[in-house]
Nucleic acid binder design. Structure first.
Lengths: 121, 121
DNA sequence: CAGAATCCCGCCGGATACTG
DNA sequence: CAGTATCCGGCGGGATTCTG
């Protein structure tokens, strides 16, 4: 992601939101209320500290999340979506709609909530 | 993809178009002219037969491409996008636009064509 | 021409333990 | 509370070879 290469913009986008956990995190933060590290972890349920901190770090590096650190003890850090990230939500909604249509078409007895991020996605 | 699971529709969508080669293939076929196996391979350049046939097969299984086989010798097979796939192109365009904006923002001396699929994506 | 079969490697992501 | 450090297995994808 940080090399200066000619790259397909779609693949660039998928690189930013790709991987197993970034999308669920973005969905969680889409509610527009800053969330603490522990709260995100609790919502996602089975993510490890390793994966969560790494995913958040990469999302931050790509300008997707704001990290606000309060210098208190015990530590408190809040994460929220950047405006750039919010601009992606529209496209994600289209993906969700398309995905739902396909799921309904292929196998017509499926419930279509987002299990991982526990939200509407 | 074929298990009957509650699944996030966005992740379902990314599952369908995910992987290294499916997106370039879709971009190629987006021109709306059916393409032969060999033509796709030639355009993509460095894809192996393994990856191309596997990607096409999975795309077909997920209702993304039509496979038209002419029973002649030597074999001739043409691939094209299904209507379902075409419904995704709008969302892909949004992804491309967002990706371009980000690329321009982060590193402002980059050309933004799609190197892999040789098309406008 | 349009693939299938096999073998193999890198790395994404998981488990566990530790810390300011 | 909010993370690091280290080790490790599985699997996505590549190289090569073969065929109807």
């Amino acid at each position: 992601m940080n090399e200066k290469l000619k790259v397909c913009p779609i693949r660039y986008t998928l690189g930013v939101i790709g991987g197993k956990w970034k999308l669920p995190i973005i969905c969680l933060l889409a509610c527009d209320t800053p969330m603490r590290y522990g709260a995100i972890k609790k919502k996602l349920g089975d993510i490890t500290n390793m994966m969560l901190s790494q995913s958040l770090k990469e999302l931050e590096a790509n300008g997707m999340v704001n990290r606000k650190q309060y210098n208190v003890i015990p530590p408190k850090v809040e994460y929220s979506l950047t405006n750039e990230a919010k601009e992606l939500l529209g496209a994600l909604t289209m993906f969700a709609k398309w995905g739902n249509d396909q799921i309904d078409k292929n196998e017509n007895n499926i419930t279509s909530g987002c299990e991982e991020c526990q939200s509407s996605c």
